Amino acid sequence: MDLLSPENVCPGLISKYFGQKYYYYQELDSTNLKAQELAAGGVPEGTAVVAEMQTAGRGRRGRSWHSPEGQGIYVTVVLRPALPLHEVSRVSQVAAVAVAETLQEELQLPARIKWPNDILINGRKIAGILSEAAIKQNHILYVVTGIGLNINNRLEDFPDDLRTAPTSAREENKMFVPRVLLLQGLLNRFEKCYQQLLEGNFSDILLRGRKLSQDIGQRVKFDTPAGYEIGLAIDLDEDGSLLVKDDAGIIHTVISGEINIIDK
């Protein structure tokens, strides 16, 4: 069976520390919640928490993540980045690039990043990323970065109320996709990208993120404290925030919230 057990996954890892400490569960409420518990208890950086299913998988802004048994990859990695607090948002950009590039390399899928941390295939959502940080006195204690990937799900099995139309690797490639190989590739690539961040080479990650962006060059609707605005997404700034020029020519730095491409 295509189980994501340590016996199946760990021998194929070439990472130095991502996944070398590997916690595996048949069922969890949330891999992020378990990873937070483990991180607070002192597990090392790179510790991976993997579940075959989640009963309360979480996305951004309190949304749920559909996590049926044995169909997807539900993994959270514990990170302890030695970064200034204002750079913590870079972790999500690193993860998004790693996921998109893994799908391109391993499955030849045309993955694109919908800012800030959704991965789409031809406009349909295949993956989501949720990074959560623990902060004390302006110091990053740890970050847990959770990744949910739709792998062998069938379209008819997704809930009807998802905000973005879903897809899966199986639906896109019209064949069963081995989850073990994909998780190995993801952990290996995520570590390489993360190492670039720690070594001060985020500019390369950002360049790749720009090329993978589905938003740059598009008219988008975005959140502001005063409500939503409409403008042209023009770039990512040095921390991965989205830069949007409104119709008056004012450039907004979008740090969080929702953005949606406006259909032409």
Rank of each mutant, 00 (worst) to 15 (best):
G72I: 08
P81I: 00
I129E: 02
K114C: 06
Q54S: 07
A95G: 14
P68Q: 03
L79Y: 00
V97Q: 06
L79C: 11
L109C: 13
I126M: 02
W115P: 01
R61T: 08
V97M: 07
P68N: 07
G57F: 04
G123D: 00
E69Y: 15
R63F: 05
G62V: 02
L79W: 06
V88N: 14
G128P: 08
Q71M: 12
K125C: 05
A56R: 15
V91I: 13
Y74T: 04
I73G: 00
T102E: 13
V50I: 09
A111R: 05
V78N: 06
R58W: 02
E101P: 10
I129S: 02
S92L: 12
H66G: 00
E105F: 10
P110F: 10
A96N: 03
R124F: 03
G62R: 02
Y74F: 14
V78D: 07
Q108W: 10
G57S: 08
W65F: 06
W115R: 08
E52M: 12
N122W: 14
E101L: 08
E106Q: 15
T55D: 06
R112H: 12
E106D: 14
R124I: 01
L120A: 10
I119G: 05
S67Y: 09
L83D: 15
V99N: 10
L79M: 09
Q108A: 14
P110H: 09
A127E: 04
A100K: 08
G123E: 06
G62F: 03
R112F: 02
L83R: 15
K114N: 12
V50S: 06
S64C: 08
V91F: 06
A48P: 02
P84C: 11
E69L: 15
R124H: 09
K114P: 10
L83C: 13
A48Y: 04
Y74H: 11
N117W: 11
S64R: 15
V77K: 01
V50C: 12
I73T: 01
P68W: 04
P81A: 02
G57R: 04
V50F: 10
I113F: 02
I121S: 10
E69T: 11
Y74W: 14
E105K: 14
V97W: 05
P116M: 09
S89G: 15
T47G: 13
E52L: 08
L103P: 03
V75I: 06
G57Y: 04
L109P: 00
V78M: 06
P110C: 10
Q104L: 15
P68V: 01
V75G: 09
A100F: 12
H86K: 14
A56F: 09
L79F: 01
A48D: 01
G72C: 07
N117C: 04
G70E: 00
